[in-house]
């Protein structure tokens, strides 16, 4: 009966994962391997294709993060500098990240027992967990050559991201290095759903008021993840341990990411950080 409960929990978390995250690993891998019936994603590999990619997305009514009329949309203007295009791209990434935070919050609320926790602890778990979750969610969208963005409609090359000016060029490379290794574990969407819940329910986040109920919840999800990995990957030795080890790498990735954002805030005059992301990153590490 106990393992039946753990299977029910796995199924529940998988269902909410599919409900709240629009681009699953299964869909992303199908796009990356050209196995969808739809057309291939638009490829961004230089500044010109970046501007064209923006046009492609605007045609599909994606809201712009900054709609000041004097900024224009950059079409056919010619005089717009690469700096401006890069900054606008960064703003779009922030807008998407804020939307990602909303998705992760809804997923967290669907974890049995989460909304029963002290509200301040729910905030702390999200504040510390959400960037880790967003980085894990990026992995299925990436391969060694680039990443899907805009819900899989666009593929942006790793070389292009490396060619941006400092420190933008340093933002994604560590995530590619992590993702290429993480993808070798070959987790599927159900494995991912359980792993994300384990990350969110970390009882060692700074400032938690009531650790015990969080640890109890995490323990149950850990059992469900262990069982899931044994059943789904019977030939993959020590997979459970390997997956858990990734949590250490994740914390370092987040620390480095937050430091880069803080550096950006100092060096880029025109940079405005999304209020939700500001809230999360303030006094984080």
């Amino acid at each position: 009966p106990e393992s039946a409960d753990l299977r029910t929990l796995a199924k529940h978390l998988y269902e909410s994962y599919v409900k709240y995250f629009p681009l699953t690993k299964a869909k992303a891998r199908a796009i990356l391997s050209g196995k969808t019936g739809d057309s291939a994603p638009f490829v961004i590999h230089d500044m010109k294709s970046l501007t064209e990619g923006e046009q492609f997305i605007n045609c599909k009514q994606m809201p712009l993060p900054d709609q000041r009329p004097e900024m224009g949309l950059g079409f056919g203007m010619g005089q717009e500098s690469a700096d401006e295009v890069e900054l606008r791209f960064f703003h779009r990434c922030q807008f998407r990240s804020a939307e990602g935070v909303r998705e992760v919050t809804e997923f967290a609320k669907s974890i049995p027992g989460f909304v029963g926790l002290d509200l301040n602890d729910q905030v702390t778990l999200l504040k510390y967990g959400v960037i880790e979750v967003l980085i894990i969610m990026m992995a299925p969208l990436m391969n060694k050559d680039g990443t899907l963005i805009s819900y899989g409609q666009i593929f942006m090359t790793r070389e292009f991201l490396k060619s941006l000016r400092k420190p933008f060029c340093e933002m994604m490379e560590p995530k590619f290095e992590f993702s290429v290794k993480f993808n070798m574990l070959e987790l599927d969407d159900c494995d991912m759903a359980l792993f994300l819940a384990v990350i969110i329910l970390s009882g060692d986040r700074p400032g938690l008021l009531n650790v015990k109920p969080i640890e109890d919840l995490q323990e149950t999800v850990l059992h469900a993840l262990e069982l899931q990995l044994k059943m789904n990957h019977p030939d993959s030795l020590q997979l459970f341990a390997k997956v858990l080890q990734k949590m250490t790498d994740l914390r370092q990735l987040v620390t480095d990411h937050v430091h880069l954002i803080q550096l950006l805030k100092k060096t880029e005059i025109d940079l405005c950080l999304h209020p939700l992301l500001q809230e999360i990153m303030k006094d984080l590490y």
Binding site: T105, H274, I280
Partner: peptide
Amino acid sequence: KEKHKILHRLLQNSTSPVDL
């Protein structure tokens, strides 16, 4: 609580992308 206004709001209600 004031420091994490938006997170509180997201936790207590569903917020549409437009509100963000």
